[in-house]
């Protein structure tokens, strides 16, 4: 491991409609790392965006039930999304595309917040991930007519995983951390003491004394929260985490869920599932040995699977 005082290379920016932070233990390689990360994120945007008419995902959603051959990257993104659906027993489901569009999240979020026209929302179970026919080996994908895929729950996390791997390769070694809207992936060798990560409701929160902080030497951390990416239509406040059982924004006792896992896709799938599962989340997480931190609507914190107590609580 490296010295605590080792200089880290850091680069901040924005990508995929959210904040980006890249850190490498090889400060001299930061520009090469950033170029590699930007390339990955540009590919993810062009492939998986629901807000670009020219994205490959939108072409699939317009295919009206026809089988299409997808690119290796979309193939991987769909495979991960369907894995997350199986693992979470449908709590995280890529067929929520129509539901989230009807809830008003039909464009880049910066534009969603400015619209206040009332909506008529009807509770209806989403089609379900079982209607998606996908062969990863042949890259064939068929989505039922009228079904819209939304990869938001897993594609951003996949982007963090791929970007971290690409940055590590560009650096030629050492260690890297990529945070994309609070979905954090690491690769390579962590600095001494590990990567210190603050957990908050909002990924844009400032780093400050008194905020709960953990350290990891490998793996990933992801947080899902209903306190951000909210919008109002009529008098109703909505958010972006859809419950596949109702097709509506999840009504959960948990406002925020954070998870530590091997990959960011796993962490994000579990944190999103925790919000959706609501009262059943704690048991679901504990039964799978997942390290998680849940925050309820009143700010009470529940730590599961050995999530460490904060230092000042010891």
């Amino acid at each position: 491991m490296r010295s605590v005082t080792a200089e880290l290379g850091l680069s901040d920016g924005r990508a995929l409609g959210t904040g980006l932070r890249l850190i490498t233990t090889r400060a001299e390689a930061i520009d090469r790392c950033r170029a590699a990360v930007d390339a990955v994120l540009a590919s993810i945007d062009l492939t998986c965006s629901r807000f670009r008419d020219d994205s490959e995902l939108q072409a699939v959603n317009r295919a009206e039930g026809r089988e299409v051959t997808v690119s290796p990257l979309l193939n991987q993104a769909v495979e991960r999304a369907l894995w997350a659906a199986r693992w979470t027993e449908g709590a995280v489901d890529p067929t929520v595309g129509t539901a989230i569009r009807l809830a008003g999240y039909d464009r880049d979020f910066a534009d969603v917040a400015s619209i206040d026209a009332p909506l008529l929302l009807v509770a209806r179970r989403v089609p379900g991930w079982h209607v998606v026919q996908h062969s990863a080996s042949s890259r064939k994908l068929r989505v039922g007519a009228g079904v819209e895929l939304d990869l938001g729950a897993t594609a951003k996390a996949l982007a963090s995983d791929l970007a971290a791997a690409a940055a590590l390769e560009a650096a030629g070694g050492g260690g890297v951390l990529v945070s994309l809207g609070g979905d954090i992936a690491t690769a390579g060798e962590a600095p001494e003491g590990g990567w210190a990560i603050q957990v908050s409701d909002d990924s844009e929160a400032p780093i400050a004394a008194g905020e709960e902080t953990i350290a990891i030497t490998r793996g990933a951390v992801a947080t899902s929260s209903t306190t951000v990416r909210r919008w109002t239509r009529g008098s109703i406040e909505l958010h972006h985490i859809i419950d596949p059982r109702t097709g509506l924004p999840a009504q959960s006792p948990w406002r925020t869920a954070s998870v530590v896992a091997r990959t960011c896709v796993e962490a994000n799938a579990a944190s999103t599932a925790a919000i959706v599962l609501g009262d059943a989340a704690a048991d679901w997480l504990a039964e799978r040995g997942i390290t998680a931190r849940l925050v309820d609507g009143q700010g009470e914190i529940r730590r599961i699977g050995g999530w460490p107590e904060p230092e000042n609580a010891a």
């Binding site: 850190i23 210190a196 957990v199 947080t223």
Partner: peptide, 13 residues
């Protein structure tokens, strides 16, 4: 656990 304020990144929504 780690010292608050020592973080290099924030995991949040």
């Amino acid at each position: 656990s780690a010292s608050s304020g020592s973080a290099v990144a924030v995991s949040g929504g």
